[in-house]
Amino acid sequence: MKHHGLLLSRLTGELVAWCLTGGATDVDATIRRLPKAWEIFVSAVFPEGSRPAVERLSRLLSSPRSAGTDEYYWNLYGSDDAVFQLGLVGAMTDEADVRFDEETGRLTIRLLRAD
């Protein structure tokens, strides 16, 4: 894909914006090159009562990879902070792992996007 770097940064940005809009503090994002994939790692601390939002996030990120969406819809990331494109993040990644520690409020999201 021609705009792959932009896609990765916007995809990560979408998650970071979602965290910040949800009241998260101490947000951290890493994008790392693996042998046959890109790994996106986002970590954030959420206020109390965030579990429903995290469950919703988890459900949306579980959307299966859809090859026909990359080239067409990637430009939607970052266009709006009222309704996020979490389902689309799911559709453009091959693996998603969401963990939430309710005691500390720490959310970790790990996404893999295969080449």
């Binding site: 459900r59 299966p64 859809s66 819809y73 709006d80 309704v83 494109q85 389902g87 559709a91």
Partner: peptide, 12 residues
Amino acid sequence: LPGRLLTDFVDL
């Protein structure tokens, strides 16, 4: 769901 592009009901 709000239905904004792209909300794929089949996938979600």
